[in-house]
């Protein structure tokens, strides 16, 4: 490759990157327009919910001015964007603590759950998708298809309840709702430093192996329930990518050369399937954020999903909108990330 074409390539990459960042900025601004609009049309008086019913008019006015509610709307939006850019999402009405701090505290639990669920989805979903693609129309294919469609069709909160009923209530194989048994929960407060906020990592770092095992028995079920949905998605996409790849000429060439079928599929074809699959996995990770709202409610999991629903019931709008904005931003960021990864891994992508 000549030096000139290298510079051209670098320039193109730079241009793509700025374009991407611009899109990201516009989308995030759009998210803020939506949350801001919601916060202004909601029939809850933000001043009243801070000062309470018994406040004097003077107190009421002071808080109103403090919140900037006397400014014109466009200016209020500007203040809002400025605040968010500085990481200020307002104060929770229930706890009076900054929403941003609370979200930072709740987020790791969701991240941990979603990561385990994605792992489960990939470990089961990719091989089953490959198996289905190599035997189209057979019973293996049908089973994978039906199991996948079942994953799409099951209400995740109901699957969670059924899991609890069977594996906790009847069989007693796993821990119940919550991150730990009640006894360990007390110990957690005093004996484990929360470096990451993720219970498995923190207990492992502290060397509390009994607590670690207990936490593991609690996370298995919610992660499995969440992972089932992403497994359905991943296996379906793997199948379709694989089918596509197996029709390519280089596969025929490899077969004609006498390469063992196993190697053709699991090495040659799979390598090319993995490229689009990265996008799918990143997307399924993003969708898990959504599934986590209902799953966390069922399993009393102290993550972002529980945080948003609890806030919703307490009519704690700053918390609801802050949570919504954060989830939306993570969602956008993951989408972008999958896009960038795709461009980096696949040299054909322009």
């Amino acid at each position: 490759m000549t030096e000139k074409s290298l510079t051209a390539r670098g320039l193109r990459l730079l241009r793509q990157l700025t374009g991407l960042l611009l899109t990201l900025a516009i989308t995030l601004l759009g998210l803020m327009v939506v949350t801001f609009t919601i916060s202004r049309v909601v029939p809850i008086d933000p001043v009243l919910s801070i000062v309470g019913e018994r406040a004097t008019t003077a107190q009421y006015e002071a808080v109103r001015l403090d919140l900037g509610l006397d400014e014109p709307l466009w200016k209020q939006f500007g203040i809002y964007v400025g605040d968010v850019a500085q990481g200020d999402l307002g104060r929770s009405i229930r706890t009076k603590l900054p929403v941003a701090d609370e979200i930072v505290r709740f987020f790791p639990a969701t991240l941990e759950l979603a990561t385990l669920a994605t792992l489960f989805g990939v470990i089961v979903g990719v091989p089953s998708g490959v198996l289905a693609a190599t035997r189209p129309g057979t019973w293996v294919d049908q089973v994978v298809r039906v199991v996948g469609l079942m994953g799409y069709s099951m209400p995740v909160f109901w699957l969670g309840l059924m899991g609890l009923l069977l594996f906790y209530g009847v069989l007693d194989w796993v821990g119940g709702p919550g991150q730990l048994d009640a006894g360990y929960q007390m110990m957690l407060e005093f004996e484990v430093t929360r470096y990451t906020g993720m219970i498995l990592i923190d207990t492992a770092l502290a060397g509390e192996w009994a607590m670690f095992t207990n936490a593991l028995s609690h996370i298995v079920l919610p992660a499995g329930v969440l992972g089932y949905t992403s497994m359905a998605y991943i296996s379906r996409m793997t199948r379709s990518f694989m089918m596509n790849e197996l029709g390519q000429e280089y596969i025929t060439t490899a077969r004609v050369k006498g390469m063992p079928e196993r190697r053709v599929i699991w090495v040659h074809a799979l390598k090319n399937v993995l490229v689009p699959l990265i996008t799918v996995i990143a997307l399924s990770y993003a969708y898990l954020l959504e599934g986590s709202v209902l799953t966390e409610t069922i399993f009393a999991w102290p993550g972002l999903g529980s945080y948003i629903t609890d806030a919703l019931f307490a009519a704690d709008m700053p918390a609801v909108l802050g949570g919504t904005l954060v989830v939306g931003s993570v969602f956008v960021a993951l989408n972008m990330l999958s896009d960038v990864l795709y461009r980096l891994v696949d040299p054909r992508a322009k």
Partner: peptide, 16 residues
């Protein structure tokens, strides 16, 4: 922008 929100979470915010 609307696609960027997870559906259930946006629906929750709207219902609120």
């Amino acid at each position: 922008i609307f696609l960027a929100f997870p559906r259930l979470i946006l629906a929750l915010a709207l219902v609120s």
